[in-house]
Amino acid sequence: MNLFQVKPNQFAKIVDLKKRDQYTNKDPVLERLELLGFRVGESLQVLEKGLFGGDPILVQIETSRFALRKNEAERIFVEIINEH
């Protein structure tokens, strides 16, 4: 499942990051997300989702919080590790 599908207050672990275009070597969005801490194996919590369609999504990794757009969150694949 992708990060955008995770419900508020759920904890998840990142299992994969997908490039927008599989034929290019660099993906600036994913490079930026990785610099911010969105790496395979990292745990996170979805805190809130926007009122209109769930966009943006607010997530927390350790003590840092990030607001991601839907197109960014859909490229981060996770598995649920804790139901709350």
Rank of each mutant, 00 (worst) to 15 (best):
R39Q: 15
F52P: 00
P28D: 05
F38K: 10
K13F: 08
L58M: 07
L51Q: 06
V59R: 06
Q45S: 13
N9R: 14
R75D: 00
L17K: 09
L33E: 14
I14F: 04
E79M: 04
I76Q: 08
T63M: 07
I81C: 00
E74S: 06
V6L: 07
R69P: 00
A73S: 05
A73F: 05
L58A: 04
Q22I: 03
V78M: 06
K18W: 00
S64N: 12
Y23L: 15
Q5E: 15
L35Y: 10
I80R: 01
F66C: 06
L3R: 08
I76D: 06
E62R: 14
Q45M: 14
L51N: 06
L30Y: 07
K7R: 10
L17Y: 06
I61E: 00
L3P: 09
R75H: 02
V40Y: 12
P28E: 09
I14A: 03
S43V: 14
N2D: 15
N9S: 15
D27Q: 07
L36W: 09
K26F: 10
H84V: 14
Y23A: 09
K49L: 01
S43D: 15
K13W: 10
D55T: 11
G54Q: 01
L68E: 10
I81F: 00
S43T: 15
F66K: 06
G54N: 01
G37I: 13
L3N: 07
E72F: 00
T24Y: 12
L3S: 08
Q10R: 03
L33K: 13
V59T: 07
E42A: 15
D27W: 02
M1V: 06
I81E: 04
I61G: 01
L51S: 11
I14D: 03
L36S: 09
V29G: 02
L58Q: 04
V29D: 09
R75Y: 01
V6R: 03
E79D: 08
D21I: 11
L58S: 04
I57R: 05
I61H: 02
L35G: 11
F4A: 05
L51F: 01
N25I: 12
L17E: 09
I14E: 04
V40P: 12
F11V: 07
Q10T: 12
G54M: 01
F11H: 12
